[in-house]
Simulated scan of single mutants.
Amino acid sequence: MMVEIKAIEPLWSVHDLSDYLGIPVHTLYAWRSAGTGPPGRRLGKRLRYRPEDVRAWVESLPTEVVA
């Protein structure tokens, strides 16, 4: 019997997320304080993001054009 092993992506730091989204780190912390932005998790003192959660959050954003 073959067991499928799923590759696990490494968690992203706030700096990784900043690079991915092109958003300053301080903005990401402000979003977190306001309860907006992608869901993050605390691992000890470190804040980490699952890439799949970030991608799902981006996909959930409205797509209206801002003038």
Rank of each mutant, 00 (worst) to 15 (best):
W57R: 08
P10N: 09
A67T: 04
S18H: 03
L21I: 02
K45I: 00
L43F: 15
Y49Q: 03
E4H: 12
R50I: 02
E9N: 11
E4L: 12
D53I: 01
S33I: 00
L11M: 15
R55S: 07
S33K: 15
T27M: 07
T36L: 10
P38Y: 10
R32A: 15
L61M: 11
S60C: 05
I5G: 05
P62C: 05
E9F: 02
H15L: 06
L28D: 03
V65Y: 11
G37A: 04
V65C: 04
E4N: 10
D53L: 01
I8M: 08
R46I: 05
I5K: 11
L61T: 03
I23M: 13
H15S: 15
Y29E: 01
P39D: 02
V58Q: 11
E52G: 08
R42I: 01
V3C: 04
L61W: 04
W12G: 02
H26F: 11
A7K: 15
G40P: 05
S13Q: 08
D16H: 14
E4Y: 09
V58I: 13
E59D: 15
A56E: 12
A30M: 06
Y20C: 01
V65T: 14
P38M: 04
G37V: 02
Y29K: 12
L43R: 10
I5R: 13
D53K: 03
L21E: 01
S33T: 04
V14Q: 04
R55W: 04
K45G: 08
V66L: 05
I23G: 00
A67N: 09
Y29L: 03
H15W: 06
E64S: 07
G40K: 04
Y49H: 06
V58F: 03
P24L: 01
I5P: 01
D19E: 13
R46N: 06
L43H: 12
G44P: 06
S33M: 07
Y49W: 13
E52D: 14
R55Y: 03
L11Q: 12
G22L: 00
G35W: 10
P51D: 00
K45Y: 09
L17T: 09
P39E: 02
W12F: 13
P24E: 14
H26P: 03
L17S: 05
L47S: 04
L21F: 12
V58H: 00
V58S: 00
W31A: 03
S60L: 06
R42T: 02
S33Y: 10
G22F: 03
P62R: 08
E9A: 15
D19P: 00
L21N: 06
E4G: 10
S33N: 13
G44I: 02
D19V: 08
V54Y: 07
T27C: 05
E59L: 12
E64D: 07
G40T: 04
K6F: 10
V65F: 13
V3H: 09
A56W: 03
R46C: 00
M1A: 14
P39V: 07
P62M: 06
D16E: 09
E4M: 12
T36R: 14
E64Q: 08
M2P: 14
K6T: 10
L61K: 06
Y20E: 07
V25M: 01
V54L: 03
D16G: 05
R55N: 02
T27L: 05
T63M: 01
W57Q: 06
Y49L: 04
